[in-house]
Structure formats: structure tokens, C-alpha cells
Simulated assay, not measured.
Amino acid sequence: MYKLIAIDIDGTLMNDRKEITKEVNDAIQAAKAKGVKVVICTGRPIAGVRSIIEELKLNDEDDFVVTFNGALVQNTYSKDVESQITLNYNDLKEIHDLSLKLNSPLHFFDTENLYTPNRKISTYTIHEAHINKIPLNYLPIDEVPKDMLISKVMYIDEPERLNATIANIPEFFWDKYTFVKSTPFFLEILDPRVSKGNAIKQLAEKLSIKQEEVICIGDGENDLSMIEYAGCGVAMANAVSVVKEVAQFQTLSNNENGVAYAIEKLVLGT
């Protein structure tokens, strides 16, 4: 019997209109009623998931959420931080210096805010702030507080330009940080210990849930680590090929209530 379901948001939980359908919500509530722990696991900041947590009623005393691709795990009832793994100022400075060499804009987060060091603010930064309903601040790198806890940094650009940036990142950078391409225009850079898979593994162990009792559902490259960890990794029909290749189960697309279908087949037996 599965005891924990970890679900990505964009391209998975939500359809392309950024809606959680009644079918998906009903399936999640039915899984909860069976005693299954449902955990949102997303690259979004915590501010970008609070309304979703409330909508899905995932805020009981022993409920958790994974944000920033695993950098922050938080109790949704008490707001207590279970784990937080961040970058520091020196990391940000190094990543920013490389962005200048590669001519790639970036933005970065602390826990509650989005920052850009670019006077000409990227449309992708504006998009990020809007989607997550998070404050956007202009902050030059040399004015960043040295003690700021930086959840993640993102290289942002048109897909073709971002691909060129990725191709020119030095090899030692790949060893020093975790990189996840969450969309064709976002490359996320995190502490090397951070991944969705590591966060779900640690959370399952805290809850005394075995690996084989875990379902993880996702569509993007940043979901790969949790799909690989899960007892049953579930790929959306709209998932990238690398996710489909490692998943044990493929469900319908995010526009076809794919999360509901997976829960019905794997958990509810309908």
C-alpha cells in the first residue's frame, strides 16, 4: 500500500490554465481519507504554494510541503522549518560573475522575495514574480547582505540562448552546484545537496514511510530525482522524455486530469 504521494505543481498538478480541476482535488481528498500523506513538491518558492496548500487542505498538523526544488521543507500547519539548505553570498557572487561572462541574465530568491540585479528586468523575472505572487526587488549584487540565505539562483533566457549558456558552463561548476532545467527558459542553481528526491527521501524517513510506499508524480527535469527515488515514479503524458524513461507508470496529461488518474489507479483502485 502506498502511504505518501509527492506531486509537482506546474505541468503536473495544474493544467495549462494554472487550474487545479475538481477531479484532481477530489482524488487528492479521497487519498487523504485513506490515510495517504499528500505532499506538494515544487520548484516554486513557499509564497507561490500557500494558496494551493489551502485549496487542497494540505495543512493539517502533520502535513509538509517541499519548495525551491527541495531546498526548503516546511510543516504547513505550524510553519516550522524541517530543513533548509541555502547558497551563500560567495556562491551568488561566483554564479553572477559567470553569468556576466556568458551574457545570461539571472535572478535569485531568499525565502520570501525574488531579486534581480538587472536594471533591465527580464520578462521571465516578471513572469516568475507574477506566477508566484512574490515581491520583486531590484538589488545589485554588491548591495546584497552578506548574511542573506539564498534559496536558489536562476539563469533565465530565451530557450536557444539558455541552451548556449548551459553548453558553456565550466565543468567544475557542474560539480559544485545542483543544476535543474525546470522549463525551457529557466536553469535553476542550488546547493549540491538539494534535490526533490533528497527532500522526499528525508521526509519519508521522518514519517517512517518506506521507499516502496512512496509515489512521486512529475513532468520536468527537476522532477527526475524524485521519480527515480520513488517506489512508483509516475510520469505525466506531457513529461519530458528522460522522466518517462525512468518512471514505472505513465498517466494522462496535466490537461486530462493525469494526477487524478494516477491516484485512482494506484491508490484508490478505481
Rank of each mutant, 00 (worst) to 15 (best):
S104W: 13
N163D: 14
V240F: 05
V259R: 07
Y261S: 14
V38P: 00
F173T: 06
D147K: 14
N113V: 07
K210A: 13
T116V: 07
E228Q: 14
Q250E: 15
A262K: 09
M14P: 03
A204C: 08
L106A: 01
G48E: 10
A47C: 13
P45I: 11
T86K: 10
Q74H: 06
P170I: 12
S151T: 10
T251K: 08
V234P: 05
A129G: 11
D175H: 15
D16V: 03
L203R: 01
K210F: 08
K206M: 04
K101T: 10
L4R: 00
N15K: 08
I5N: 00
L56C: 08
K152H: 10
G218P: 05
D80C: 03
R193P: 02
K57N: 13
Q84V: 10
T76L: 12
S241K: 14
V240L: 13
E112P: 00
T67H: 05
Y261H: 15
E23G: 15
T270F: 14
P192Y: 13
V81H: 07
D10V: 08
L98A: 02
I20E: 04
A71E: 04
A33E: 13
D60Y: 07
N254W: 06
N75F: 09
I52K: 10
Y155C: 03
N118G: 05
S225C: 07
E54F: 05
V180G: 05
H127L: 15
R161H: 12
S208I: 02
Q250G: 01
L58G: 03
T42I: 06
S253E: 12
L100T: 02
Q250H: 05
D63K: 03
E23P: 01
V81P: 02
I189F: 14
I156E: 09
W174C: 05
G35T: 02
D16W: 07
R50V: 12
T125C: 06
H130D: 11
K196V: 00
D110H: 11
Y115F: 15
F108P: 02
A6W: 00
E213I: 02
L102A: 04
V267Y: 08
A199Q: 00
M154F: 10
E171G: 02
F186G: 00
K34M: 11
L203N: 01
I52C: 07
C232F: 03
A47P: 08
I150R: 08
T178N: 15
I263V: 12
I5W: 00
S225Y: 03
A199L: 00
A6S: 04
D8K: 04
E54G: 07
L100W: 00
I134R: 03
S241G: 01
G231N: 07
S208F: 10
T178A: 13
M148G: 01
Q250W: 01
R50D: 12
G233A: 05
L266M: 12
L58E: 04
S83N: 04
I46L: 15
L149M: 14
D60T: 03
N69G: 09
G269P: 11
T183R: 12
D223H: 06
E228W: 01
D10S: 09
C232Y: 07
T42R: 07
N59Y: 06
L190P: 03
K152W: 13
E171C: 04
L224V: 06
A27H: 05
F249N: 09
D16C: 09
R193A: 12
I215M: 09
D142S: 11
S104Y: 11
F179M: 09
